[in-house]
Design a protein around this nucleic acid. Sequence first.
RNA 1: GGACUCGUUGCAUAGCUUGGAUAGUGCGAACGCUUGCGGAGCGUUAGGUCCCCGGUUCAAAUCCGGGCGAGCCCGCCA
Length: 627
Amino acid sequence: MTFKSIIEEIENNLNKILGELSISDVKFTVEPAKPGFGDVSSNVSFLLAKQLKKSPKDIAEMLSEKYQHCSSTLVLKTKAHQSGYLNFFANWEKLSQMILSESHLHEFGDVDIGKNTTIVVEHTSVNPNKALHIGHIRNIIIGDSISRILKKANYKVNVLNYIDDSGLQVADIIVGFKHLGFDQESPDGKKFDHYCGDDVYVKTTEKYESDSSLENIRKNILKELEDGNSETAKFADKITRRVLANQLETCWNLSVSYDCLNFESQIIRSGLWSKIFDKIKEMNLIEFEDEGKNKGCWVIRGADKDEDKVIVRSNGTATYIAKDIPYAAWKLGLIDDPFHYQKYEKKQPNSRILWQTTLDSNESTKNFSGQKVITVIDSRQARLQKIITSLMAKFKSVPDAYVHLGYESVTLSSDTAKILGLDTDGKQAQMSGRKGLYVNADSVYDMLKEKIKDETKKRHAEMDSSDIEEIAHNIAVGTLRYEMIKQDLDKIITFDLTKSLSLDGDTAPYIQYTHARAARILEKSKRAPSINVDFSLLKEQAELNLIKTIGMFDMQVRDAVNNLSPKVIARYCHDLAVAFNSFYEHVKVLELGDESLENSRLCIVDSFKITLVKALDLIGIVAPHRM
RNA sequence: GGACUCGUUGCAUAGCUUGGAUAGUGCGAACGCUUGCGGAGCGUUAGGUCCCCGGUUCAAAUCCGGGCGAGCCCGCCA
């Protein structure tokens, strides 16, 4: 047990006391205390004030007195604060031992919320016609972090990446290749996804304005893409798979991996749509419109007439949102799986097996569906996702089976927009793939890595280049990932090229640096750290505060899972680092001339390092031993 | 026009779900700390009508209502 054990002990005792007073049904809180108010605080006296007709302070004093008679192993003393709070001071000798011992267990920080049920996390899902830009990265890092955190909470997680390989954006680059004469190889050795996005896509869509005949060509290509046997579809398949391979390289480089790639073209060709269409007709979830502006269409009824959403056009074709319905149902395992699965041609760096859908019935059968589904899509799609969510709720009885995890977009600062050639008059700017207004993820990574290499060389002139390379990689990835999740999902990130290169303050390098410091102490120490030490020697505020923070790990994981909030873990890593830096500054570990004190402190350093590594892993960040 | 999200110091943010003590942090600013286990660090100082008005409450940054400002969505496009 961790810090939670003292909280539970206090909760039990307070409940006992309230029982003796014949008071029930009081939902008081018992929480870690703010600094300066002991270790644990309860608001119980506030809640009793009315009923007992006494001031919170008097009640706190009364409870504090009664608490003396409770059996307690982890609470040393209680104190009624004049504000009315009831504060508790821990028996740190025992609590330190519990926390530090547990921190060495493999399962430290595990919580059982998922009960080993299966959950699907879908993220990334970028059109395979361009390179990933910094806005996509927010989606990918949120999705990857959430899936790591859910695993820690005992969910079996299936991570999916939906490949929209038959949409308009793909048609656009096919127009470029087939009708505007773009070379199928990037001319200057540029990465193929960058070439498709920066050159083919941008320049082709530019041409639509001057040449209206292209619109028709695109329409025909779009139609041909749906028929898998057409020459165009085969050509497009070749192109999109090359782009996809490049996109995956970017993701893998950021320590992101998947379980299965789902190709939209195959969903279309599998006939899944007509099955689900029949089903929702049967269930009366959609209606055929006889009159009005949507005459001849199948619609989902909205709250009022204006919010009706067309699912099937009057010409019989399905709309954009319609494609999401069979896919959502498939993710929840609500329909017979029309797919077979084969291994993707390249291996993921972490050796997790990556599967992809196929319609070839000679390949394996698998099950990638889940009891619950989390779909990570930016909140501009909230309206459409809400329709899918309520539709799925009618299919599946599990509450909240389908969750849209939305997040605000990444915009460009006016300075950065200006660098890219757009004067926004001091305002931030929305990125646009079509207009070529974006910052590619690969370039940000490269810039970060170069800067970090310089910094590392300054500090370690003797280090060989492959070590520097590895350190710079881990710090660059950490920096990028941390910046993408450290704030709330519903806050816009204004990306600025210059500021993004900052490595001070509330950043991944700050956290990673504390790991290097801890690693250095353990390395320099002649002894192996042990948990068989004298915990009574640990009395300094900085020591206890660090131990307390370590003991919060499982509570933080729980919080992150319940709120689907990777930020919670990012903050926790930062809190750990702050606590360690304070410890480092105030307390010496080595060469104390007191072997048992040294052992005790080494134990803290070791626990800190282990816990930090585990917490950072939940957000996909690796901390180097030297930097 | 309607829906959704955001508004906390010069800037960027935490706290809001679950009301309670002293609103925490980073950047920027000023000053200080290195013969010491690594200064990508630590400490000190200055800087706050928690957008406004009203309500609920013993108690509101937090909950509710109404404004204001910003963003975003609202197609038989994807």
